[in-house]
Amino acid sequence: MVMENQPEAWYPDKRALSRKTAREESMRRAIEILEQLVGDGTLKAYAIGGGVAATFYAEPVLTYDLDAFVLLPPSSGLLVSLSPLYDKLRGMGFAEDQEHVLVGGLPVQFIPAYNALVEEAVENAVPLPFGDTTVRVVSPEHLLCIMLQTGRPKDRARAALFIEEAEVDRGRLMEILSRHGLVHRWTALTEGRPA
């Protein structure tokens, strides 16, 4: 069994490190669209969340969509509607695939900020470099809080891995956890018991 002398380049295609890939181009396109939607007022703000956001801070996790948390501009009605956003995307030529919009083959899921924690996560998103552009990503502290709040088995598993790998500001994390009533969930996770 090989354990001690693992090769440095253990992944299969080292040349791919410096090659522009279809993934990079699709992601870049998705970022451009999100920025454009903010620029023209269709969205108030956005932040990448979910598994792709976690991948910015930790090892890649299996996910099938790019979650974009969005803040919508104030509307006259009481209900939040994604219709203007989808109308705009249709007008730009993007196809819908169930709950996603396909951007260069990348399934993007637009999720309106559904509670105070997610709203705060979008407002405090971190601009991170992606190639020669910048993308707004939910901060590691907010991401961890959202995982704990959502609380599905896969979120708890991700959270456990995330706290091992990501650089998390513990002071800021505790402040957010307290403000959103999530300290008990954090304690349960760190003590390895169900919330």
């Binding site: 992601m27 090892e59 890649p60």
Partner: peptide, 23 residues
Amino acid sequence: AADARRRSQLVRLPIEEKLRLLV
């Protein structure tokens, strides 16, 4: 230990490479 080393390498990869691994 080998697993921890590999995960540490994964964490430090550029995001573009992480997306390639995700696919």
